[in-house]
Design a protein around this nucleic acid. Structure first.
Lengths: 203, 203
DNA sequence: ACCCTCACATACCATCGGTACGTGAAAGGG
DNA sequence: CCCTTTCACGTACCGATGGTATGTGAGGGT
């Protein structure tokens, strides 16, 4: 019926979809390959024909998750005309998207541990983190925040939002307070640029 | 020679010390129990007499690491008289302490994945994160930053510093720029309090 | 001197991630 | 239309892993 290429892709997608479900609910280490192939209706031979290892399968899942988050963030942010609004709205959108426990487990908890921080960082950079760095560069260019290297600021903000999202998953009642605190932090960033001198900090 | 209690504790400490070394360099998943017991000069029976599982052994290691970081941060911060200096100095001290790759691997990478985020968070709260929350509460009490819930702010800052430390491990040349960016973020926090109204955020 | 406790060692197990090889249907050439 | 090659899997199997059940021998109280 289906051509070989079609069948191949469908099997691969099934594998990714089912393993994503399992990784998200039980965590990477708690999911066995036998469980995955059973859910996908194939055998281990099929899995290892598509992926070199369990970790690489997880990598494919992670890439999918990050792509979705990045798309959501980008779509929400790009709807704003003002650069500053694009920035703050994008940050809040990321916070919202990352509050989903299934997304968290894969993207923030197991991601760095399974693939190593370097590889995880590279993938994050290709996802939503890129939008953050871009937005910061725009803000500097527009003179809305002080001229400075974007990388340190991007990492600080990225880490802040990641951790905040993880925390909110266990205490969702603090969502509004966290959004406000984040908004304040971002706002303070803008206010600092108006302080004329880019205050050089000792050490 | 040694009393039973002494022998017991010594074995336990050896187990923690050797496994910490291995976990730090190779990562939790890449270290086998056989490797650990060989390095410690005991057998698996001894390990499972002291710890219920590999994860619990890792938990003991993590507790030790976090205690050391917390002590360093507290010692550095408490040397400052001014509350604001205590805050900023403590943050910078945490950043410095967390830049060590061995500490990172255990405390920031494997920690959440092995023990789960909730348990990891609880341990972090008992460590350096507690000092952060305390310092923030002091600043609010002293009127140096706007009155607000401390928890959201603490998580945002904690996450920012964690991620920054991880990043610095791979690009240490950006240490000064990151310290400056962090100092700016903290400073902006103080500046925001002078804005009279504790701006209520919509949403 | 007795015996119980307990800090380990030994032997063993199920399951895991991973691999070598077999198989049968689709694609390509004559 | 047939023959051959390719390739997307399935099957059978492996070593190593985390974990357990049981043995053992030196404290240590009475």
């Amino acid at each position: 019926m289906a051509s070989r290429a079609e069948q191949r892709e469908q099997t691969r997608r099934t594998l990714v979809r089912e393993s994503r479900q399992l990784f998200a609910t039980k965590g990477y280490a708690a999911v066995g390959l036998s469980e995955i192939v059973r859910a996908a209706g194939v055998t281990k031979g099929a899995l290892y024909h598509h992926f070199e290892s369990k970790a690489e399968l997880f990598g494919a899942v992670l890439a999918e998750v990050q792509q979705e988050v990045a798309d959501t963030v980008a779509a929400t942010a790009d709807a704003q005309d003002d650069p500053w609004d694009r920035f703050t709205t994008g940050c809040q959108a990321f916070l919202t998207a990352s509050t989903d426990p299934a997304t968290q487990r894969i993207m923030l908890i197991d991601g760095p541990a399974v693939l190593g921080w370097n590889e995880w960082r590279a993938m994050d950079e290709a996802g939503s983190a890129r939008h953050l760095a871009d937005a910061l560069a725009d803000l500097i260019e527009a003179g809305l925040i002080a001229r400075q290297p974007v990388a340190p600021l991007a990492h600080l903000l990225s880490g802040a939002m990641n951790e905040a999202a993880l925390w909110l998953a266990t205490s969702p009642g603090d969502l509004d307070a966290t959004r406000a605190a984040l908004a304040q932090m971002l706002d303070a960033l803008r206010a600092a640029s108006e302080g004329a001198h880019p205050l050089t900090q000792r050490s």
